[in-house]
Design a protein around this nucleic acid. Structure first.
Length: 263
DNA sequence: CCCGTGCCCTGGCGGC
DNA sequence: TGCCGCCAGGGCACGG
Protein backbone atom coordinates (compact mmCIF):
# COMPACT_ATOMS: atom_id res chain seq x y z
CA UNK A 1 0.00 0.00 0.00
CA UNK A 2 1.76 3.06 -1.21
CA UNK A 3 2.31 5.73 1.41
CA UNK A 4 4.53 8.81 1.10
CA UNK A 5 7.86 6.94 0.66
CA UNK A 6 6.45 4.62 -2.00
CA UNK A 7 4.86 7.55 -3.82
CA UNK A 8 8.21 9.42 -3.74
CA UNK A 9 9.85 6.34 -5.23
CA UNK A 10 7.27 6.16 -8.01
CA UNK A 11 7.54 9.91 -8.72
CA UNK A 12 11.31 9.67 -9.02
CA UNK A 13 10.81 7.01 -11.67
CA UNK A 14 8.03 8.93 -13.47
CA UNK A 15 10.28 11.97 -13.75
CA UNK A 16 12.56 10.01 -16.05
CA UNK A 17 9.71 10.30 -18.56
CA UNK A 18 9.33 14.07 -18.49
CA UNK A 19 9.54 15.84 -21.80
CA UNK A 20 7.36 13.15 -23.38
CA UNK A 21 4.02 14.04 -24.90
CA UNK A 22 1.09 11.75 -24.19
CA UNK A 23 0.21 10.90 -27.77
CA UNK A 24 -2.61 8.43 -27.13
CA UNK A 25 -4.57 7.09 -24.16
CA UNK A 26 -6.45 3.83 -23.90
CA UNK A 27 -8.76 3.69 -20.90
CA UNK A 28 -10.36 0.34 -20.15
CA UNK A 29 -12.09 1.68 -17.06
CA UNK A 30 -14.09 4.87 -17.74
CA UNK A 31 -15.19 4.99 -14.13
CA UNK A 32 -11.55 5.51 -13.18
CA UNK A 33 -10.31 7.42 -16.24
CA UNK A 34 -13.21 8.98 -18.16
CA UNK A 35 -13.40 9.71 -21.88
CA UNK A 36 -13.39 13.41 -20.98
CA UNK A 37 -10.00 12.92 -19.30
CA UNK A 38 -8.76 11.00 -22.32
CA UNK A 39 -9.73 13.89 -24.62
CA UNK A 40 -8.19 16.58 -22.45
CA UNK A 41 -4.94 14.83 -21.62
CA UNK A 42 -4.18 13.55 -25.12
CA UNK A 43 -1.31 15.52 -26.71
CA UNK A 44 -0.38 17.24 -23.45
CA UNK A 45 3.29 17.13 -22.45
CA UNK A 46 4.61 15.78 -19.13
CA UNK A 47 6.67 18.74 -17.91
CA UNK A 48 7.23 17.57 -14.35
CA UNK A 49 5.92 15.03 -11.85
CA UNK A 50 5.66 15.93 -8.16
CA UNK A 51 4.18 14.40 -5.00
CA UNK A 52 2.02 15.73 -2.19
CA UNK A 53 1.36 13.23 0.58
CA UNK A 54 0.23 10.08 -1.19
CA UNK A 55 -0.83 11.90 -4.36
CA UNK A 56 1.12 12.00 -7.63
CA UNK A 57 0.80 15.20 -9.68
CA UNK A 58 1.61 15.15 -13.41
CA UNK A 59 2.25 18.77 -14.46
CA UNK A 60 1.02 18.95 -18.05
CA UNK A 61 0.77 21.95 -20.40
CA UNK A 62 -2.77 23.05 -19.57
CA UNK A 63 -3.76 20.77 -16.72
CA UNK A 64 -2.47 18.87 -13.74
CA UNK A 65 -3.34 15.19 -13.61
CA UNK A 66 -3.66 13.97 -10.03
CA UNK A 67 -3.19 10.25 -9.47
CA UNK A 68 -3.73 8.29 -6.27
CA UNK A 69 -2.55 4.66 -6.17
CA UNK A 70 -4.68 3.67 -3.16
CA UNK A 71 -3.93 0.05 -2.30
CA UNK A 72 -2.29 -1.50 -5.30
CA UNK A 73 -1.96 1.02 -8.13
CA UNK A 74 1.33 0.79 -10.04
CA UNK A 75 3.01 2.44 -13.00
CA UNK A 76 5.15 0.47 -15.40
CA UNK A 77 7.10 1.70 -18.39
CA UNK A 78 7.98 -0.47 -21.37
CA UNK A 79 9.45 0.53 -24.70
CA UNK A 80 7.04 -1.86 -26.41
CA UNK A 81 3.26 -2.39 -26.32
CA UNK A 82 2.02 -5.26 -24.20
CA UNK A 83 -1.32 -5.05 -22.40
CA UNK A 84 -1.33 -7.30 -19.36
CA UNK A 85 -4.00 -8.21 -16.81
CA UNK A 86 -5.14 -5.28 -14.64
CA UNK A 87 -3.69 -2.64 -16.99
CA UNK A 88 -6.53 -0.08 -16.94
CA UNK A 89 -4.93 2.94 -18.60
CA UNK A 90 -2.19 2.84 -21.23
CA UNK A 91 -0.42 6.05 -22.21
CA UNK A 92 1.42 6.06 -25.53
CA UNK A 93 4.35 8.45 -25.14
CA UNK A 94 6.72 9.95 -27.71
CA UNK A 95 8.98 7.10 -26.72
CA UNK A 96 7.49 3.95 -25.22
CA UNK A 97 4.38 3.24 -23.15
CA UNK A 98 3.32 4.00 -19.59
CA UNK A 99 0.93 1.46 -18.03
CA UNK A 100 -1.32 2.12 -15.04
CA UNK A 101 -1.96 -1.26 -13.41
CA UNK A 102 -4.30 -1.72 -10.45
CA UNK A 103 -5.59 -5.11 -9.29
CA UNK A 104 -8.29 -3.72 -7.02
CA UNK A 105 -9.30 -0.77 -9.20
CA UNK A 106 -9.21 1.50 -6.15
CA UNK A 107 -6.89 4.09 -7.67
CA UNK A 108 -8.24 7.49 -8.70
CA UNK A 109 -7.50 10.15 -11.32
CA UNK A 110 -8.51 13.81 -11.11
CA UNK A 111 -7.83 16.44 -13.74
CA UNK A 112 -7.49 20.06 -12.60
CA UNK A 113 -6.82 23.43 -14.14
CA UNK A 114 -3.47 24.76 -12.97
CA UNK A 115 -4.90 27.40 -10.66
CA UNK A 116 -7.39 25.10 -8.90
CA UNK A 117 -5.01 22.19 -8.31
CA UNK A 118 -4.25 22.94 -4.68
CA UNK A 119 -7.38 24.92 -3.81
CA UNK A 120 -9.96 22.23 -4.62
CA UNK A 121 -10.40 18.64 -3.42
CA UNK A 122 -8.70 16.29 -3.13
CA UNK A 123 -5.50 18.27 -2.52
CA UNK A 124 -7.18 21.14 -0.65
CA UNK A 125 -8.24 18.69 2.05
CA UNK A 126 -4.68 17.76 2.96
CA UNK A 127 -2.71 18.87 6.00
CA UNK A 128 1.02 19.49 5.76
CA UNK A 129 3.56 16.73 5.33
CA UNK A 130 5.51 15.81 8.50
CA UNK A 131 8.57 17.53 6.99
CA UNK A 132 6.93 20.96 7.16
CA UNK A 133 4.32 20.83 9.95
CA UNK A 134 5.18 22.68 13.17
CA UNK A 135 4.65 21.46 16.73
CA UNK A 136 2.08 24.20 17.28
CA UNK A 137 0.10 23.33 14.14
CA UNK A 138 -0.07 19.65 15.03
CA UNK A 139 -0.95 20.47 18.63
CA UNK A 140 -3.88 22.63 17.50
CA UNK A 141 -5.33 19.69 15.59
CA UNK A 142 -4.69 16.96 18.16
CA UNK A 143 -5.70 18.74 21.33
CA UNK A 144 -9.37 19.01 20.45
CA UNK A 145 -9.86 15.38 19.46
CA UNK A 146 -10.82 12.40 21.55
CA UNK A 147 -9.99 10.01 18.72
CA UNK A 148 -7.09 7.58 19.03
CA UNK A 149 -3.68 8.91 17.96
CA UNK A 150 -3.39 5.99 15.52
CA UNK A 151 -6.55 7.17 13.78
CA UNK A 152 -5.36 10.79 13.84
CA UNK A 153 -2.03 9.89 12.21
CA UNK A 154 -3.99 8.27 9.38
CA UNK A 155 -6.19 11.36 8.95
CA UNK A 156 -4.72 13.09 5.90
CA UNK A 157 -6.35 16.41 6.78
CA UNK A 158 -4.17 16.60 9.90
CA UNK A 159 -0.86 15.49 8.39
CA UNK A 160 -0.52 13.91 4.99
CA UNK A 161 1.62 11.02 3.78
CA UNK A 162 1.37 8.53 6.65
CA UNK A 163 -0.52 5.25 6.15
CA UNK A 164 -1.05 2.17 8.24
CA UNK A 165 2.49 0.77 8.07
CA UNK A 166 4.37 3.92 9.01
CA UNK A 167 1.80 5.01 11.62
CA UNK A 168 2.58 1.86 13.62
CA UNK A 169 6.34 2.37 13.25
CA UNK A 170 6.18 6.06 14.21
CA UNK A 171 4.15 5.30 17.34
CA UNK A 172 6.60 2.57 18.34
CA UNK A 173 9.62 4.86 18.03
CA UNK A 174 7.73 7.58 19.91
CA UNK A 175 6.76 5.13 22.68
CA UNK A 176 3.10 6.11 22.45
CA UNK A 177 0.20 3.69 22.79
CA UNK A 178 -1.88 3.84 19.56
CA UNK A 179 -5.10 4.17 21.57
CA UNK A 180 -4.01 7.35 23.39
CA UNK A 181 -6.58 10.10 22.79
CA UNK A 182 -5.42 13.12 20.79
CA UNK A 183 -6.19 15.45 23.67
CA UNK A 184 -3.97 13.41 25.99
CA UNK A 185 -0.89 13.75 23.76
CA UNK A 186 1.68 16.07 25.38
CA UNK A 187 3.81 18.69 23.67
CA UNK A 188 6.94 16.60 24.13
CA UNK A 189 5.13 13.65 22.55
CA UNK A 190 4.15 15.83 19.59
CA UNK A 191 7.80 16.72 19.14
CA UNK A 192 8.63 13.01 19.19
CA UNK A 193 5.87 12.22 16.69
CA UNK A 194 7.12 14.80 14.18
CA UNK A 195 10.77 13.85 14.68
CA UNK A 196 10.06 10.14 14.25
CA UNK A 197 7.69 10.67 11.31
CA UNK A 198 10.49 12.44 9.44
CA UNK A 199 12.98 9.78 10.49
CA UNK A 200 10.82 6.82 9.43
CA UNK A 201 9.71 8.38 6.16
CA UNK A 202 13.23 9.42 5.17
CA UNK A 203 14.65 5.99 5.94
CA UNK A 204 11.86 4.35 3.96
CA UNK A 205 12.46 6.69 1.01
CA UNK A 206 16.14 5.70 1.13
CA UNK A 207 15.10 2.02 0.94
CA UNK A 208 12.80 2.62 -2.01
CA UNK A 209 9.66 2.11 0.11
CA UNK A 210 8.14 -0.94 1.77
CA UNK A 211 7.01 -4.02 -0.13
CA UNK A 212 4.55 -5.98 1.99
CA UNK A 213 1.94 -6.99 -0.50
CA UNK A 214 2.77 -6.03 -4.02
CA UNK A 215 4.40 -2.60 -4.09
CA UNK A 216 6.94 -2.40 -6.90
CA UNK A 217 8.09 -0.15 -9.72
CA UNK A 218 10.28 -0.48 -12.78
CA UNK A 219 13.16 -0.11 -10.36
CA UNK A 220 11.99 -3.24 -8.49
CA UNK A 221 10.60 -3.54 -4.99
CA UNK A 222 11.35 -1.56 -1.82
CA UNK A 223 13.28 -2.86 1.16
CA UNK A 224 12.03 -1.00 4.21
CA UNK A 225 10.01 -4.06 5.31
CA UNK A 226 13.32 -5.46 6.57
CA UNK A 227 13.54 -2.57 9.03
CA UNK A 228 10.03 -2.75 10.47
CA UNK A 229 9.85 -2.96 14.26
CA UNK A 230 6.19 -3.75 14.87
CA UNK A 231 4.02 -3.65 11.75
CA UNK A 232 3.22 -7.28 10.70
CA UNK A 233 5.24 -8.52 13.72
CA UNK A 234 2.33 -9.93 15.75
CA UNK A 235 3.43 -12.78 18.01
CA UNK A 236 7.10 -11.87 17.73
CA UNK A 237 9.14 -10.36 20.57
CA UNK A 238 9.65 -6.61 20.81
CA UNK A 239 13.23 -5.72 19.80
CA UNK A 240 13.56 -3.52 22.89
CA UNK A 241 11.90 -5.48 25.72
CA UNK A 242 10.93 -8.92 24.32
CA UNK A 243 7.22 -8.43 25.06
CA UNK A 244 5.13 -10.17 22.39
CA UNK A 245 3.91 -7.65 19.82
CA UNK A 246 0.16 -7.19 19.97
CA UNK A 247 -2.18 -7.07 16.97
CA UNK A 248 -5.44 -5.20 17.47
CA UNK A 249 -8.01 -3.38 15.36
CA UNK A 250 -8.28 0.30 16.24
CA UNK A 251 -11.20 2.10 14.58
CA UNK A 252 -11.27 -0.49 11.84
CA UNK A 253 -7.52 -0.40 11.14
CA UNK A 254 -5.22 -3.30 12.03
CA UNK A 255 -2.56 -2.03 14.40
CA UNK A 256 0.62 -3.54 15.81
CA UNK A 257 2.33 -2.33 18.98
CA UNK A 258 4.28 -3.24 22.11
CA UNK A 259 2.15 -2.89 25.23
CA UNK A 260 5.24 -2.48 27.40
CA UNK A 261 7.18 0.12 25.39
CA UNK A 262 4.08 2.02 24.25
CA UNK A 263 2.10 3.25 27.23
C1' DC B 1 -18.77 20.33 13.50
C1' DC B 2 -17.27 15.77 14.83
C1' DC B 3 -17.12 11.07 14.48
C1' DG B 4 -18.26 6.19 13.11
C1' DT B 5 -19.77 3.12 9.44
C1' DG B 6 -20.20 1.21 4.91
C1' DC B 7 -18.67 1.03 0.36
C1' DC B 8 -15.56 0.34 -3.52
C1' DC B 9 -12.76 -4.35 -5.43
C1' DT B 10 -10.22 -8.71 -5.99
C1' DG B 11 -6.53 -12.08 -4.77
C1' DG B 12 -5.21 -14.89 -1.26
C1' DC B 13 -5.91 -17.60 2.50
C1' DG B 14 -8.30 -20.35 6.22
C1' DG B 15 -11.54 -23.81 7.02
C1' DC B 16 -13.76 -27.93 5.93
C1' DT C 1 -7.90 -31.25 -3.92
C1' DG C 2 -11.41 -27.84 -4.41
C1' DC C 3 -14.54 -24.51 -3.25
C1' DC C 4 -16.67 -21.06 -0.44
C1' DG C 5 -16.55 -17.04 2.34
C1' DC C 6 -14.18 -13.53 4.38
C1' DC C 7 -10.73 -10.02 4.90
C1' DA C 8 -7.52 -5.93 3.91
C1' DG C 9 -7.39 -1.08 3.26
C1' DG C 10 -7.51 4.97 1.69
C1' DG C 11 -10.67 8.13 1.08
C1' DC C 12 -15.22 9.66 0.64
C1' DA C 13 -20.41 9.82 1.20
C1' DC C 14 -23.65 9.60 4.48
C1' DG C 15 -26.04 9.62 8.84
C1' DG C 16 -26.41 10.23 13.86
Amino acid sequence: MPELPEVRTVVKFLNTLKGNHIRKIESYLPKMFSSELVDKVTNEKINEVTALGKYIIFHLDNYNLISHLRMEGKYFYKDYYEKTKHDHVIFTLDKGYLYYNDVRKFGTFDLKNKEETFTTPPLSNLGKEPFTITVEELNQKLKKSSRAIKTLLLDQSIMTGIGNIYADEILFLSKINPKTRGLDITISQIKELIKNSIKVLNEAIKEGGTTIHTFSTNEGQGWFQLKLNVHTKAGKPCKICNTIIKKEKINGRMSYYCETCQR
